[in-house]
Design a binder for these strands. Structure first.
Lengths: 334, 334
DNA sequence: TTGAAAGCGCTACCAG
DNA sequence: CTGGTAGCGCTTTCAA
């Protein structure tokens, strides 16, 4: 039940080397004030004793943990994986660890997760796709001096550090491409989240800007999974739709929509055009290679870490918004 | 640069409540020895002062961090995401945090990552797909009393806790299915890793068991990416292959192989059959829905945490190997 | 039921 | 160049 091995401490090394623990500390941390010879002797002994500095004690003493917390709210696995990968690589490169907290999709558990991270005294927190955090929470955290960065989604009512995709532009991009190809029969299966709604706005603004009637641009909001896309598309099909241009809130929805379309015996891009959002790794290898909007998720993670780090180093600087540009990737589905 | 806000401590709460910090500690941790009334008063004050217990200090005092470390070596993103998801959910449910360390694919950095985790005094470590860890490392860690669990891949020279897929059986399963469908023209594009080689062995053993000549079962070892699969398949095609049954070491390789086949103008499963390994989420939505072997990665993560937890609670128990059964999933590619 | 003392392992600060 | 003292915030132990 308990740790049965007392680990070797600075004191042990010190005793063995016949110096004080202070000297050992300085020696092992490369600080000045120790003669080269002593330092080398200490290093040898430390290695022999398998000394591993207790970073818990260091953290307590220095009130910093060299660890950042990440709370990932629901989102597709690909997004999740890429984000974490980009983030943790950047963090590791800067000598930071990443403490992970994935909160199913229960928004209530976001604050819970944050509390835990604060309690563990992480040096900062990255909130990825957080939905339950508003002005009050941000200000409370701010008052406690906890560096915070929002990824993908951020509250509008407060100024915060954030790195987001320009979702409005992304929606605009996809609609514009389709409009220019001559299509006029649009349907949107939207992701029901704030970036999702932003994409819809971009798409709407683009098409009404081209003179289309907003009433002719039906939107159906739904979840982020393949099953959600399937269900939404089946509904359209059931209502008698036999052709159309389907703009989807994310790639998974697009996959579901394509599945429903193909299942009903229609052709893509013959009868139906489908466009996604994300450009996840396998978008090019689907039954019909997916035309979609690319948002660089891995970069977003890395950028998020850098932004957090910069706030840790400089707590008083003004907030920054890093807005990553989306990009159209044309394949075969539209 | 520094934290400018002194956080409220037990002492602060104690002073405000007019009791000792001991009493506050007991009250807030639900320990006996405090009257209901005092407890309630203390709780109110703690909330008002936004007291957040310093888990770094707790960890130092109690020599446990309620955190486990995970080192993920390279593997496909889907595997990565699913594993982490399953693992972190199980961990969260048990009140543990997850400290992540992804080591690109540099095996040398695995020990480095482990050292860091040990230094941060995690309560245990999960090694996922670790390749650079052998007997020596395991024994060193063991001597320090660090609970360790291997996932997916484990050293053979030492007894360790591990949860793995029965790769030999998986290879066997896929070969047997194909053999029974009447195919005799096998090619293996293997994943060059110990589980990968195990799969090849299963496949070989199965087919030679059916009386086939081992010399007629060519194997090409390669990396785990789509590009690797593509390259390997292109090589076969270039050598004049015009039909065959391609067993792939993982789904990504299969995707690459299929891509190369289709690109060359051949049909699947007409000219070429392709079978994968993993059954990642999108296997059913590929250009040709992929027949593959399913290994439950999420469960593996969850099971891995449970195994680690059980070793943390009971350090002296004998090692356990949890072997998850693979399962054939037939779709259209073979 | 309550609290004082001691100490987890480390480092900042200052004196020698 | 070296080391003593003090204390980070908490909990274990034991005495009141």
């Amino acid at each position: 039940m308990q740790q049965r091995y007392r680990r070797t401490t600075l004191k042990d090394v010190a005793r063995e080397a016949g110096v004080s623990s202070m000297t050992v500390s300085k020696a092992l941390n490369g600080k000045p004030g120790v003669s080269e010879e002593t330092r080398r002797r200490i290093e040898t002994i430390a290695r022999r004793l398998r000394y591993s500095p207790n970073r818990v004690a260091q953290s307590l003493r220095q009130s910093k943990t060299d660890t950042i917390g990440v709370v990932m709210s629901d989102s597709s696995q690909n997004v999740f994986a890429n984000l974490i990968l980009g983030l943790s690589q950047a963090a590791a490169a800067a000598g930071y660890g990443v403490l992970l907290t994935s909160t199913g999709q229960d928004a209530g558990r976001e604050t819970e997760a944050i509390d835990l991270l604060v309690s563990k005294r992480v040096d900062g927190i990255v909130l990825a796709a957080a939905s339950g955090i508003g002005r009050a929470e941000v200000e409370a955290l701010g008052a406690q001096g906890i560096p915070l960065v929002f990824l993908m989604r951020a509250p509008r009512s407060v100024e915060v550090d954030q790195v987001i995709n320009d979702n409005h532009l992304g929606g605009h991009l996809s609609a514009d491409y389709l409009y220019r190809r001559g299509y006029r029969d649009f349907y949107f299966i939207g992701l029901d989240s704030s970036p999702g709604r932003e994409r819809v706005r971009g798409y709407r603004d683009c098409l009404t800007g081209h003179g289309m009637d907003a009433g002719r641009l039906p939107v159906q909001y739904t979840g982020p999974t393949i099953a959600d896309g399937q269900a939404a598309m089946r509904r359209l099909l059931r209502e008698g739709l036999r052709s159309g241009t389907i703009c989807c809130g994310c790639d998974m929805i697009a996959i579901g929509a394509m599945d429903a379309i193909l299942e009903a015996g229609f052709a893509i891009p013959g009868d139906f055009r489908v466009i996604g959002y994300d450009d996840f790794d396998l978008a090019g290898y689907l039954r019909v290679p997916l035309t979609t909007i690319c948002q660089p998720i891995g970069e977003m993670g890395a950028e998020g870490f850098r932004l957090l780090k910069s706030r840790i180093d400089e707590p008083e600087r003004p907030c920054r918004s890093i807005i990553l540009p989306p990009r159209l990737v044309v394949r075969e589905s539209a």
